[in-house]
Design a protein around this nucleic acid. Structure first.
Length: 613
RNA sequence: GGGCCCGUGGCCAAGCCAGGAUAAGGCGGCAGCCUCCUAAGCUGCAAAUCGCGGGUUCGAAUCCCGCCGGGCCCGCCA
């Protein structure tokens, strides 16, 4: 199921055999000495073990490599072994390795690459979690797209996945928006989340000088935190409308949620109280002293700074609610939440929501593993949340809590700010619209179809693919400076480039029509063929790496490379007009398998799959 | 003051955790390729003191120490 790993293991076996024949011992595992030569002409896999042995054996690496090669008889997936410098280079027998790889892909099809390392464990992934008072800007888009992609990958890795979107309806932003909504008489027209975002930014200018207004906001916030019925219901309705508008945006990007968790519901359900009681029962939640007198402070035994959890007015801080939520995700609370059906996503996923009037359901939460997709600026609070699990004796839950931290998206000269309204023009809706219309323009330039529906569908898919890829392909810990040229990039190394390679593969298969294929091992001689095949073989390992490192960019980079190599193959190796029937069948299988792996990858990245474009 | 992340050709960026061969790939630039499976493509060329300085090592972009630059965190804010 993992052809590349199988190949590596075979190399290790051969090496092991050669080494024991010479009675040479290596201190670390042979697997770790393997690497890929910089040029396939040197070989497909190499070991640097000769350099290490030269120290203990007091001999130069060259002669060690030479002697070692003399002891190993190439067989199986390896056809040739050569010593070069201190390296031992292994050459793959592409007929056998090709058959093994292609056979695996043909057999598993859409499930090729799916490894059952999740063992049916449940992972809860929280992402998006935007204040329900504004539209998603491109930075929120990064969060949602990373989270959504991780959800897809974990499903492929054999986990049961539940995606949660945490709605903070008790924050200051909600209080401010509520006041603003009341103050601003002439409301702008448009999508509700945009409307709220605009009036919020408008109010903020006034808030800076208008003390009366500030008092009003504080009053509303206090009422919300106390859970006063009338105002809470107004707030909830406003937030509900905003969330609904936000979901229209994420729907377009193909993002799904299983559950919306409302902060107010977590607080009201008694979960917060229960978790705080549990902390009080430990020696770690202590009364604050000095300037913190009157508060309750979480004091960690192991180096993390003190953190106030209960303010002197008796209310809980944000982090306290986060702790409660985290404990609930693992199913470690007696108190529970109530749920009802919320809405259906484009892909058919049913989204539920917590709701005071809903009913208890056992299917939510109860995670074995929790991944929070939250900005890197929250590393400290996330650490506090996780560490407090340990203080409560939830050692295992502590170990299974992960913070997928990502850096922000910003403009060349400023950050996005809801208060200043700098997101305007850079909301996911705005960017998507621009990207799609640009894709449309490219289609118009290319001669071809006049089918209006086809054009619209392709432009939408290309736009979504371009945006998702551009936000996924950079590693999460790197800040992204948003530039239109990059979001609108449809050339190589972009979402559309991958879609294009896929469409070309489809085109070959369409045109070749029916063919009869005898089951003979494939023939691959061209470097372009070999390099595509090797990439196909590496796919399962890529998925594993994404899951282990929580880095979806690894998959994005991989599939872009596959598309690129496939294009080179496309130019160099005619399929339909291949030199011999054997080569034709070999290439055809390679195309079919490339198509499968491209499709599987695109599905996981949420890049729409197009048969033609 | 303490801590975390980032720094790789003009621009973006992989590799760093598990040290090895000529430091991927893309954008932009220059020069080519469509009677042939979709030119959103392919080929070639030019372009890098891997932030700086030490150290470890046969070997350092990668490990260690120090420094510089950029971002973020260290609230009873949210």
């Amino acid at each position: 199921m993992d052809p590349w790993e199988g190949l590596r293991q075979e190399v290790v076996r051969l090496l092991d055999e050669g080494l024991s024949g010479l009675r040479w011992r290596v201190s670390r595992s042979l697997e770790e000495t393997l690497e890929e030569p910089p040029d396939p002409r040197f070989g497909d896999i190499a070991t640097t073990v000769g350099f290490e042995l030269s120290k203990t054996l007091r001999e130069n690496p060259q002669s060690i490599a030479k002697e070692l090669v003399g002891k190993i008889k190439p067989r199986g997936l390896i056809e040739r072994i050569e010593p070069v410098g201190g390296y031992v280079n292994f050459f793959v027998e592409f007929s056998k390795f090709g058959e093994l790889t292609l056979e695996a892909i043909e057999r598993f099809g859409e499930r090729y690459g799916h490894l059952d390392i999740g063992n049916d464990q449940k992972v809860v992934i929280e992402h998006t979690s935007v204040n329900p008072t504004k539209p998603l800007h491109i930075g929120h888009g990064r969060n949602a797209i990373i989270g959504d992609t991780m959800a897809r990958v974990f499903r492929a890795l054999g986990y049961r996945v539940e995606v949660q979107n945490y709605i903070d309806d008790l924050g200051r932003q909600v209080a401010e928006t509520l006041v603003a909504y009341d103050e601003v008489k002439e409301k702008p027209k448009g999508k509700f989340d945009h409307v709220l975002g605009i009036i919020y930014a408008q109010l903020h200018e006034r808030l800076e000088e208008d003390l009366e207004l500030e008092q009003k906001v504080r009053g509303v916030l206090a009422s919300l935190e106390r859970g006063e019925k009338a105002i809470s219901e107004v707030a909830r309705r406003l937030c509900e409308r905003c969330v609904k508008a936000n979901l229209l945006t994420t729907d377009r990007l193909g993002i799904s949620y299983d559950l919306l968790v409302w902060e107010s519901d977590v607080v009201r359900s008694g979960i917060l109280g229960e978790v705080l009681d549990r902390l009080r029962a430990t020696p770690y939640l202590v009364e604050g002293t000095g300037d913190k007198s009157g508060t309750l402070v979480l004091r960690f035994p192991d180096g993390i700074e003190d953190k106030v959890l209960i303010r002197s007015n008796g209310t809980a801080v944000y982090t306290a609610r986060d702790i409660a939520y985290q404990v609930w995700k693992f199913g470690c609370t007696k108190a529970g939440l109530r749920f009802r059906f919320h809405s259906k996503r484009k892909d058919g996923v049913k989204t539920y929501t917590t709701s005071p009037k809903g009913k208890a359901m056992r299917r939510f939460g109860r995670a074995d593993k929790v991944i929070n997709v939250v900005g890197s600026e929250q590393k400290f609070p996330q650490r506090v949340v996780f560490a407090s699990l340990k203080l409560m004796g939830l050692e295992q839950q502590f170990r299974n809590s992960y913070h997928l931290a990502y850096e922000h998206v910003r403009l060349p000269d400023q950050r996005f700010s809801g208060r200043k309204g700098t997101w305007m023009g850079f909301s996911v809706d705005d960017v998507l619209e621009e990207t799609i219309s640009r894709a449309r323009a490219v289609m118009e330039e290319r001669a071809g179809t006049t089918d209006e529906r086809f054009k619209r569908r392709v432009a939408e898919s290309v736009g979504v693919g371009a945006l998702r890829f551009s936000l996924l392909s950079t590693s999460p810990e790197k800040e992204i400076v948003f530039k239109w040229e990059e979001a609108l990039d449809f050339d190589r190394n972009s979402g559309p480039a991958i879609q294009y390679s896929y469409a070309r593969a489809c085109s070959i298969l369409r045109k070749i029509g029916k063919y009869k294929s005898k089951r003979v091992p494939p023939t691959f001689r061209l470097p372009e063929e070999k390099s595509v095949l090797k990439l196909l073989a590496k796919y399962p390992g890529i998925l594993r790496a994404v899951g282990e490192k929580l880095q979806p960019n690894i998959l994005a980079r991989y599939v872009a490379e596959l598309a690129l190599e496939f294009n080179k193959f496309y130019e160099a190796a005619p399929v339909i007009e291949a030199e011999t029937p054997e080569i034709r069948v070999s290439r055809l299988r390679l195309v079919k398998c490339t198509r499968i792996v491209l499709k599987n990858s695109m599905r996981l990245l949420g890049i729409p799959v197009l048969e033609r474009m």
